[in-house]
Design a protein around this nucleic acid. Structure first.
Length: 292
DNA sequence: TACCAGGAGAGCG
DNA sequence: CGCTCTCATGGT
């Protein structure tokens, strides 16, 4: 590994950055001048990936790159994950469609807030809402000369002090009272997001689901994308459609049955399988609005 | 115009 | 429990 000033290069095989950053798990990455630009915690980050490595650039000197390796989940061997998938045609097709797709390890509060804002919204619109929210309530960050300004994701404390009308002005509509209530519960210590990793899976999900605006799907997204519970299997309209069409053609299956099937069929890394299916369905049934 | 988007919550029989 | 409706906003 080579480090000079604010850049670092990690050797890594089979990391499909494009699929990873556009597959609807994180919402702040932009493709700009042949690189991915985003924000991780309080760091502005620019990433370039090739077949054998990922090179990262930050705006300020970094002594320890552990936070970045953790976010990108560089220690994960994709082949190990794929070996746990069921050997069936739908999974083979989904994996073939987005080789090297990874799951990121995101900050719990940012992930929770982002997915509260995601309900019944297209990914491009979620990105827009979050962009407005960060611009208006996030702490401005140091950025290299020539780069546009960016801000950190707003803290729960900051949003807890906002009004519902102010949040609605960020285009989030009926999700505003949900986000506000959850920000106030987190800020008031009535839910401790740092403690959840120590809680058994089902109990952690149940606790997340006590939050207003957080049902089974969003709770599973947070467990998967923030806490690394790789068996969590969020079922949204796309994944429901995927399982319906690929595994139960011409037989109507209820929503609860989709969960039961997923839990027993996809194995210990069901969440990874879910992400491959999601990205596969979206890229094989493209909507113009999603791919400019 | 009607319909949909990485849902959740409330009301109904 | 299982179904339906509504919520806010922007796009096709």
């Amino acid at each position: 590994m080579t480090v000079e000033a604010s850049t670092v290069t990690f050797p890594v095989r089979e990391y499909n950055a494009a699929a990873t950053f556009t597959s609807g798990q994180a919402f702040r990455w932009r493709w700009c001048d042949n690189a991915w630009i985003g924000v991780i915690g309080k760091h502005w980050v620019r990433l370039q990936a090739d077949q054998y490595s990922i090179t990262a650039q930050t705006a300020e000197p970094v002594a320890d790159w552990g936070w970045l390796a953790d976010y990108l989940q560089l220690q994960v061997d994709v082949e190990d994950v794929l070996r746990t998938f069921p050997d069936d045609e739908p999974i083979r097709a989904a994996v073939a469609a987005c080789r090297g797709l990874r799951l990121l390890r995101q900050d719990p509060w940012e992930c929770l807030a982002s997915f509260i804002l995601s309900s019944t919204k297209q990914i491009s619109q979620i990105q827009h809402i979050i962009s407005l929210l960060c611009e208006r309530y996030g702490e401005p960050l140091t950025v290299p000369v020539g780069q546009g300004p960016v801000s950190a994701f707003p803290t729960a404390a900051r949003l807890a002090g906002a009004s519902e009308a102010e949040l609605r002005a960020c285009k989030m509509g009926f999700r505003a009272p949900y986000l506000l209530a959850v920000a106030r519960r987190v800020e008031g210590g009535r839910i401790d997001l740092e403690r959840l990793p120590a809680v058994p899976f089902e109990a952690a999900r149940a606790e997340l689901m006590t939050l207003p605006g957080v049902g089974r799907k969003i709770a599973d997204c947070v467990l998967l994308f923030a806490y690394g519970c790789s068996k969590a299997f969020p079922v949204d309209v796309w994944v429901a459609k995927a399982i319906q069409e690929l595994y139960f053609p011409r037989r109507r299956v209820r929503f609860s049955q989709l969960h039961e099937f997923a839990a027993e069929h996809f194995g210990p890394n069901a969440g990874y399988a879910q992400q491959y299916l999601f990205h596969y369905m979206r890229s094989s049934h493209p909507r113009r609005v999603e791919r400019p």
